[in-house]
Design a protein around this nucleic acid. Structure first.
Length: 422
DNA sequence: TCTGGGGTCCTAGGACCC
DNA sequence: TCTGGGGTCCTAGGACCC
């Protein structure tokens, strides 16, 4: 197996730069939803020592001092540019696995006779030319080693690295903290350190029984992958989702049941829309509300119910969701976040009818919801909403510094006028 | 004042079945 | 004296990822 990993360089920042070239060379950050944490940093910002995930308010002085350009997350833009990158990659191999919004694995096994570094370089240049997004590419005999190679690639000027031999791998792994291996998180890192395992190479050479006992088959696979045996296949067809979650933090704490109902109504509507797009129905509905984890009076309430029959029909799901909310709601607490999870998803093609419903009832439900989806697609999300959604929503998440949705909204297209581009 | 959102996989243990 | 064996399904919790 020969795997390449294509990783977009500080993707969200790069997306902002594509349509605002004046941002090149300047320090730029992109914030998480609700403008809470830093989730993407330009190299200039990394050089200032800003860590991934720090709360934005903690870097406010740095922002002023270095005139860091700040943006709220603009997922309409990032999602669209991601699609363009992935489509471009499909020119280069029939087997592309879209792993996340900014990463893809490519199977290059059939290209072994070529100079793969050169091939990767041409991939990189094409993506840059066609989409404006800079990428780094690592090549190795397994997904885990391709990840390692990508880390090396990011530090080279070329932005491409081919890990070809076990000696090369060991050389790199010996200088790599074990925490940086894909699949080793903070918990396992802590435990491994107590076992005297500090580097990736030490992990690779560790006692298999010990790793297996602690980490199960996940650990075994990881060891094999590091040794160059591919265990994790490239998955070209996305697996059907098993659950779908919509949740948001509030801009300010909410205590009132009415406002929570509004929020749950919007989240549930969005979640139902998502599973309809995936052509799925849900068997299980979970509703949760919770305070900030930093709160002095913490509260976390949730309820999972199994639906009488699988559904993706918003009004029906909504009735259950609001019922659950009333059950779990406790007055006088400061809720900071709420959400719904639709789980036990199954294909729409399987249908269990309710004893008292007729084919005609179901058909008219489907027609109604199809029209709602159409209107919201055409005129924008939440043009048509269900039930008790008001317009004055003081709890709505913040997105105060969002750039234009340059590629997906007619009235936000980039302007070709003097002064815009600089 | 202010700390994201959306997922996946694996395991262990209990309930229940024949 | 002596009380089986082999399963499935569900849930909760732990770990990870970007």
């Amino acid at each position: 197996m020969i795997v390449a990993l294509v990783d977009c360089n500080n993707f969200y920042v790069s997306c902002e730069r594509v349509f605002q070239p004046k941002l090149w060379g300047k320090p730029v950050v992109v914030l998480s939803n609700n403008d809470g944490c830093v989730v993407a940093r330009s190299p200039e910002v990394k050089a200032l020592g800003v860590a991934m995930g720090v709360p934005f308010f903690k870097i406010a002085p740095l922002v002023r001092k270095h005139d860091i350009q700040v943006f709220s997350s603009n997922y309409a833009l990032y999602g669209d540019l991601s699609n363009r990158v992935m489509t471009t990659l499909e020119q280069f191999s029939p087997e592309v696995e879209i792993y996340s919004i900014d990463e893809a694995f490519i199977n290059l096994s059939n290209f072994a006779q070529m100079n793969l570094s050169e091939y990767a370089t041409s991939i990189k240049e094409t993506v840059r030319q066609w989409t404006g997004i800079p990428v780094s590419i690592g090549i190795g005999p397994s997904k885990v080693l391709a990840k390692v190679a990508t880390e090396v690639a990011k530090k080279t000027k070329l932005g491409v690295y081919h890990l070809e031999s076990a000696e090369q791998a060991d050389e790199i792994l010996s200088k790599m903290p074990v925490r940086d291996i894909w699949g080793i998180g903070s918990r396992l890192n802590k435990w491994l350190n107590t076992q005297g395992i500090l580097t990736a190479l030490q992990f690779k050479q560790a006692n298999e029984g010990l790793i297996q006992k602690k980490m199960g088959v996940v650990g075994q696979r990881l060891l094999l992958e590091l040794k160059g045996y591919s265990c994790l296949p490239i998955e070209v067809m996305p697996n059907p989702k098993q659950e779908t979650c919509v949740s948001r933090s509030f801009a300010k704490p909410v205590t009132n049941l009415g406002e929570l109902k509004e929020a749950i109504t919007l989240y549930l509507s969005r979640a139902a829309e998502k599973i309809r797009n995936q052509k799925q129905r849900a068997n299980i509905l979970i509703v949760f509300i919770r305070s900030s984890i930093y709160s002095e009076q913490p509260v976390s309430r949730s309820l999972a119910i199994t639906l009488p029959t699988a559904s993706n029909y918003t009004p029906e799901l909504l009735a259950h969701a609001l019922g659950s909310l009333e059950t779990i709601y406790l007055p006088n607490y400061q809720y900071k976040k709420a959400g719904v999870i639709l789980s036990g998803l199954q294909p729409e093609s399987i249908r269990q009818c309710n004893l008292f419903e007729t084919e005609r009832d179901l058909q008219s439900q489907e027609n109604l919801i199809a029209v709602v989806d159409q209107i919201n697609r055409k005129y924008g999300a939440e043009t048509v909403t269900f039930g008790i959604v008001g317009k004055r929503q003081s709890w709505r998440m913040r997105a105060e510094k969002r750039s234009w949705r340059f590629t997906t909204k007619w009235d936000e297209l980039p302007l070709a006028k003097a002064g815009y581009w600089n």
